[in-house]
């Protein structure tokens, strides 16, 4: 079950990252921001955190996890334990953004590295 969810999330993230790439040439950037993620996401920090962890594990499997993601996941979990749902939600959203960006990076770099070989 967890594998299915994680696979699904991975695809979702790749799709999201494609949108991100498509917009990256605009002068006023249209990439994912915390405000947009805030507006788009479910209200429950637990739900955001669950999805984010599977994104994070996907990046980790590719040796592409970021410190910022695990740091914000830890912040979110601590806030959840303390019962501060608003803080937990913000940290979970920040973790989600970096988890998505790290997977997009892993995906892009799986080919882009070749351009740097002398």
């Amino acid at each position: 079950m967890i594998t299915i969810v994680s696979r699904y999330s991975l695809h979702l993230c790749l799709v999201l990252s494609l949108f991100g790439c498509g917009e990256s040439n605009s002068v006023k950037p249209g990439e994912a921001t915390l405000a947009k993620a805030d507006a788009a996401a479910s209200d429950s920090p637990e739900v955001i955190l669950f999805a984010t962890k599977s994104l994070y594990n996907g990046a980790k499997q590719k040796d592409h996890a970021w410190i910022a993601t695990s740091r914000e996941i830890a912040v979110a979990e601590k806030a959840l334990e303390a019962g501060d749902l608003a803080a937990a939600r913000q940290a979970a959203l920040r973790a989600q953004l970096t988890a998505q960006a790290s997977l997009a990076q892993a995906n892009l770099e799986s080919q882009a590295w070749r351009t740097r070989v002398p």
Partner: peptide
Amino acid sequence: GKQFFYERRGQLNFACSSCHLQ
């Protein structure tokens, strides 16, 4: 190993080669 050396990683988006070659 070669791919790892030239792949950008991390939030700051550097490859090994970004600093120590380029």
